[in-house]
Design a protein around this nucleic acid. Structure first.
Lengths: 235, 235
DNA sequence: GTTTCGCACGAACACTGTTCTACATGCGAA
DNA sequence: TTCGCATGTAGAACAGTGTTCGTGCGAAAC
């Protein structure tokens, strides 16, 4: 901001050169600030008005660069998918490669809490999404799976990753900033499971410990491994 | 309503008082008409106002029987889960039993388009939801799986079913009542996949036929089978 | 110097979930 | 029979949401 602009802004109360004072807004800038907003406050906090005020403008200005909120969501998921680095398929380590792609997708989703909801509600037609689908499909094919099986498993894996991240995100949102009594530690969870009527829930009450077992992403790793291990011997 | 209207209402029809003219509204009646609304117009059409007008009343009246919309969602999913019939676990046919429970859940979700979104965004604490979890867990344990594996797989299966149904629901919503050109037949889909740049999407363009293969719920059956088949030999 | 074009933006519309408040209604008690 | 009283019923309103219309300003093109 040079002297003239500063003087104008000070003089008329931001009338004259307001649009030049800050960088012009573009789809990339929209995506950047939207992702920053989601990273800090979650996907539910991403509204057109919040995004507009974060960009120091009004809601109507966003529609010059984005046709919809669904379009914005697609841009966000595309950006996230573009951050996934794809390996060149290697038949000797295809399983680890597939696990790595899924873990990358998981980390990218969880970095922006709740954004996997947008991924689930979206038509998988964006190019960047197809890119990670293509990369994962290549890895599964390198593993020797039949093309149809690889295609099915690819879809199932991507779908499961999104659903898992959504579940984790809502669980985390429940644990933090929820004033009422929500179970956080495992002991309390086990106690609640065991307190259920045993005649109606015989297996849950008996295996309450196993149901609450697992650190970090053990469940995630288990399920992905389940699918991948079942995929290989079918070839 | 003043005395004149009351007298007119009494005169014209059945029953003395207006609230008696139609059945008093209760949580069950809320759930009934809400499910009918979702079955006809999809979950997105289920708003408190639409539900209230469907019950011939105002939005505020609903909050006497339901604390929240989230609470209503929980009641809906609970109702749906209560319709699933659980088998008594049989070690000789545990795999078919598990497939059947998943298929039942799938059919119940798909009968009410988009309602699986509510299932995904919900804390799995409702008793009826725990009931099908318990039944599925019993079946998996009957298959000889280790308790931890059974618990993990149980969660993964329920999660996948909900995500699959959500995907199918949005795909169907896109195909119907969308005025712009959305791909419906498989040939067009294959053509679009093959039209992608082959250097960026080598595997998708090569296996476009396999990606669009599958009738009905073949993908669903494949994925569920993948998880179940991988579960058994681990025991 | 004038014109035109594209982006910005205030205001508004049709919605959403939710709450406040008043009102009527039916039931049990006096 | 008459009188509270609790409970369910609503109208209106509030704070939000996504989206659009019309206006207007800035800067580039002629």
């Amino acid at each position: 901001m040079n002297a003239k602009e500063r003087r104008a802004a000070r003089h008329a109360g931001d009338g004259a050169v307001r649009t030049r004072a800050r960088p012009a807004l573009s789809p990339e800038r929209l995506v950047d600030t939207a992702l920053a907003l989601v990273a800090e406050e979650g996907y539910e906090a991403l509204t057109m008005r919040r995004l507009a005020t974060a960009l120091d403008t009004g809601p109507a200005s966003l529609y010059a660069h984005v046709v919809n909120k669904a379009d914005l969501d697609e841009l966000l998921i595309s950006r996230l998918c573009s951050e996934v680095v794809l390996p060149t398929p290697d038949p000797s380590s295809w399983s680890e490669q597939a696990r790595d792609v899924c873990a990358q997708l998981r980390e990218v989703y969880l970095r922006y809490p709740g954004i996997s909801r947008a991924a689930l509600a979206m038509a998988p037609t964006a190019l960047e999404i197809l890119r990670v689908n293509d990369g994962l499909l290549g890895v599964l094919l390198a593993g020797g799976a039949a093309p149809v099986d690889a295609a099915y498993a690819c879809d199932a894996l991507v779908l499961y990753v999104a659903a898992y991240c959504l579940e984790v995100s809502v669980a985390r949102a429940r644990s933090t900033s929820d004033d009422l009594d929500w179970v956080v530690d495992r002991d309390e969870m086990v106690r609640r499971f065991e307190a259920l009527p045993a005649e109606r829930f015989p297996y849950i009450t008996r295996h309450a410990a196993q149901l609450t077992a697992g650190e970090g992403h053990d469940r995630f790793d288990f399920t992905v491994g389940l699918m991948l291990d079942g995929l290989a011997p079918r070839a």
